[in-house]
Amino acid sequence: MSTDAANDPMHEVLRRWQTAFDSHRADLMADLFTPDALFQGFGPETISGRDAVRGYYEAVPDYRRAHLGDVHGYRIGEQVAGGFADVTFRDPTGWEAPVHLSLVLQYEDGSWRIRQYHASRIVADH
C-alpha cells in the first residue's frame, strides 16, 4: 500500500471535504459521510447520520473557510483508514479556530467515506 499523499485516503477525503466546506455545499458534505456516521464538531452533542451532518454544515456561515495543515493517515486493510489533520477554520471577520481533526474512514460503494469525525479545538492553556 502506498502512503504518499496522492494515494492516501485521508488526503483524498480531506481534499473533497475542504472543497465542499469552502463552497458551503452541505449536500456534498453530507455525501462524504457514511449513512450512520458519528460526528462531533463544535457543538455540545455528538450527532449521527447524514441528515444531521447536513444540518450541521448548513448552519456554518458561508464565508467560513477551512485551511488544512499537516495530515497523517493510516490504513487497516482495504476497507478501513483514518488519521489526524491540523485544520484552522477562519473567516473574514478575523475569527479563527485551530483544531485537531480525527477521522475514521470506510471504503464503500467505490469511494472512501467518513465513518467517524471528531474536531478538538486547540487552546493555549488547559
Rank of each mutant, 00 (worst) to 15 (best):
53 V>E: 13
79 Q>R: 08
66 A>F: 07
85 A>N: 03
77 G>Q: 04
44 P>H: 12
64 R>C: 11
69 G>E: 09
65 R>G: 01
42 F>C: 00
56 Y>W: 10
74 Y>V: 07
65 R>V: 12
52 A>F: 09
87 V>K: 10
60 V>Q: 12
78 E>M: 01
46 T>L: 14
80 V>G: 00
57 Y>W: 15
39 F>C: 04
53 V>W: 10
68 L>G: 02
57 Y>E: 14
42 F>S: 14
50 R>C: 09
64 R>T: 14
49 G>D: 13
82 G>H: 06
62 D>Q: 12
80 V>Y: 00
61 P>R: 03
66 A>S: 15
92 P>N: 02
44 P>F: 11
66 A>E: 07
57 Y>G: 06
50 R>K: 15
48 S>C: 14
47 I>C: 09
83 G>A: 05
46 T>P: 01
51 D>C: 03
51 D>R: 10
82 G>V: 05
81 A>V: 06
41 G>F: 08
53 V>R: 05
53 V>P: 11
77 G>R: 03
78 E>V: 02
81 A>S: 09
52 A>K: 14
71 V>M: 04
79 Q>V: 04
70 D>L: 08
47 I>K: 14
88 T>P: 02
69 G>C: 02
92 P>H: 04
83 G>T: 10
39 F>N: 08
56 Y>N: 15
89 F>N: 02
53 V>T: 12
61 P>G: 07
40 Q>F: 09
70 D>V: 11
89 F>I: 13
76 I>T: 05
66 A>L: 10
80 V>T: 14
44 P>V: 12
53 V>K: 10
72 H>G: 01
89 F>R: 05
48 S>V: 11
60 V>H: 07
58 E>D: 13
90 R>G: 00
67 H>E: 14
40 Q>V: 13
79 Q>M: 05
86 D>L: 09
52 A>S: 15
73 G>L: 08
65 R>S: 11
54 R>I: 07
38 L>P: 01
55 G>A: 06
45 E>K: 12
68 L>H: 05
57 Y>C: 09
78 E>K: 08
77 G>Y: 01
59 A>V: 03
45 E>R: 08
65 R>K: 15
64 R>N: 13
46 T>C: 08
64 R>M: 15
40 Q>L: 13
87 V>T: 06
51 D>S: 12
39 F>T: 07
68 L>V: 04
64 R>W: 13
